[in-house]
Design a protein around this nucleic acid. Structure first.
Lengths: 252, 252
DNA sequence: CGTTGCATTGAGGAAAATCAAGTTGAGTGG
DNA sequence: CCACTCAACTTGATTTTCCTCAATGCAACG
C-alpha cells in the first residue's frame, strides 16, 4: 500500500525493522525533512536530537497552552491542528501528513497556541527546539532549510486566508480536494483515489463552512460526475473540471 | 503628535537628525526590532547590515514575483501586503506599521509571494537576508528573536484564519478596530482616536467582506454609539461594547 | 438490536453579495 | 471662487449563498 517515491522499497523495508532506533541517516523522510547536501557527520549531529513518539487515533500530540519544548516531524499518520478562543470559538487550521513539521506557532511565546490531534495512528520525531537552534548554528544549510520551512508555513497560511476570504463554498472544497490530491501524490499514493481522514465537520471548520454545506458540495460534485464520494473514500474522476471549479464561477 | 512610549522624546529628536545615517544603536525601534540584551559590539554588527529606503504613498516596496534579497523593517509609515492569484483573485493579507518586519513569506522560495504597497509615505530598513542569517549564527539571541518573529507571523495568520472562517461581518470589523487600536496604542498614539490609512475596499478585502458590508457595519456601530466615523477618522467611544461584539452575537 | 456518531437531504430564514442610486470631499482648472 | 471630475463612501432594494433546523439514513459497536 505504501509506495515511497523518493527511495527504494528495500530501503524502506530496512527502515521498518529499525523503526525504534531513531536515525535521521536512515529515515525515509530525509529528503522531505532535511536539507539535501548534508554530509554524514552533519546528519549524525541530528541523530542525537530526535526521539520518536507514537500517538494513537484521537490522541493529542500537544495541547494549546502547553509549554513548548519541541517541534514534531511527522513520520507517518495524519493530524489536525486547531486554534481555540476563550469564547469557545475554534477552528481547524490545518491537516498535516508525513514529512511535515508541527509546532512552529509555539516558538513565538514558548507556549503551544493550538491543539494537535491525531486523526489516525501516527508517529512523530520529537525535535527539541533548543538543540535544533544550537545545531543549526554550526550547519548553515540546516538553518536555511529551517527558515524556508517556517516561511513556507506563512505562505500556506496566506493561501488559506485567500481561500477563506474570497472563495465560495464549492471553490473552497475543490481547492481542498486538489490540495489533498497533490500531497498524497507527492507521497507515493494515488492522486485520484484516497480516503479522507477527517469528518465533514472538520473539513467545514477548516474551510469556514458548515458540515451540511460541505456535504452538499460533495453531492453536487458527484452529480456533476467530477468525483465519486463513498463516505470517506474519494475518487477524482475529472480533475480538469475540478480545477475549473477554482477559476470560474459559471455553472451550467 | 508622535509620542513614543519606549524611549525619551529627546532621543527621538536626535534620531530625526541622524535619520539618514543608518544606525541600529540609535534607532527608536530597537526594542521592537532587536532582542533586548545585545551588547554594543553586537549591535554594531547589525549596523553594517541595514540600509534605509523611502517609499512614497502608493509606491511598491516589492512586487509579487520579485527576487528576494532582503527583509524590510518598517521605521515609519503604513503598508499593506496583498497576495494575487493567476485568476485575478487578490486579497490584502495584512496592514503593517512601525516596527514590523516584511518579506518573511519570500524566504521559502527566494521570490516574493505578495505585493507590499505603502498606504502613506513610509521608510524602511532594508536587511539583506543572507547577512542576517550569517550574523545570527554568531549571536544566538538574535537568531532566537528572529525565529520568534517568524513564529509570531504564523500565529497572527492563524488568528486571521479564525476571523475569516468563523466570524460574522460585525465581529470581523470589531476585531479589526480593536487590533488597530491596540497597535496604535503600543506605538504611543491614542487608542481611541486614529485615522484609517486604507479604503473601505481594502478593509473589506482583508476581512473577507465587500466594501458595502464594511460601510454598513461602520454605520451600525455609529448608530449604536460605539464609535464615531468621519470618513477615515475613527473615534472609539465605548471600547467595552466594541469588545463585546467579539464574544456574543446577541443584539438588542 | 438499540445506541451512537457521522452523513445526507430538504425547507426556511438570515447574512452578506450584488446592483443601483446618490452623496461627499479632495483635487483641478477655468 | 466656482464648476467639474473622480474616487471613495453611503444607503436602499433585491438576489444569492450559506446557515439553521429538522428528519432520515446508515454503518459500527457493544
Amino acid at each position: 500500500m505504501f509506495k515511497p517515491v523518493l527511495i527504494e522499497p528495500s530501503i524502506y523495508c530496512q527502515l521498518d525493522i529499525v523503526q525504534f532506533k531513531s536515525s535521521c541517516a536512515a529515515c525515509s523522510l530525509r529528503e522531505l525533512c532535511l536539507p539535501v547536501g548534508l554530509n554524514e557527520d552533519e546528519v549524525k549531529k541530528l541523530d542525537i536530537v530526535s526521539q520518536k513518539r507514537k500517538i494513537t487515533r484521537g490522541g493529542y500530540l500537544h495541547h494549546a497552552g502547553a509549554k513548548f519544548q519541541s517541534l514534531y516531524a511527522i513520520r507517518s499518520g495524519f493530524l489536525k491542528t486547531c486554534v481555540l478562543e476563550q469564547d469557545g470559538r475554534h477552528q481547524v487550521t490545518g491537516f498535516h501528513m508525513t514529512g511535515e513539521l508541527l509546532g512552529l506557532d509555539a516558538i513565538s511565546t514558548d507556549v503551544h497556541t493550538c491543539d494537535a490531534i491525531a486523526l489516525e495512528d501516527s508517529e512523530v520525531c520529537e525535535i527539541p527546539f533548543a538543540k535544533l537552534e544550537e545545531i543549526s548554528r554550526t550547519i548553515p544549510s540546516l538553518m536555511r532549510h529551517f527558515h524556508k520551512i517556517m516561511s513556507r508555513e506563512i505562505v500556506r497560511d496566506h493561501g488559506v486566508m485567500l481561500l477563506l476570504g474570497s472563495m465560495k463554498a464549492e471553490e473552497r472544497l475543490a481547492s481542498f480536494l486538489l490540495n489533498l490530491s497533490r500531497r498524497f501524490h507527492l507521497r507515493g499514493y494515488s492522486e485520484y483515489n484516497f480516503n479522507l481522514r477527517m469528518t465533514r465537520e472538520e473539513i467545514g471548520s477548516y474551510l469556514g463552512l458548515k458540515l451540511e454545506t460541505v456535504s452538499r458540495a460533495f453531492s453536487k460534485f458527484q452529480d456533476e460526475e467530477i468525483i465519486t464520494v463513498d463516505n470517506k473514500h474519494i475518487q477524482i474522476k475529472d480533475i480538469a473540471r475540478l480545477r475549473m471549479k477554482l477559476s470560474n464561477s459559471d455553472v451550467s
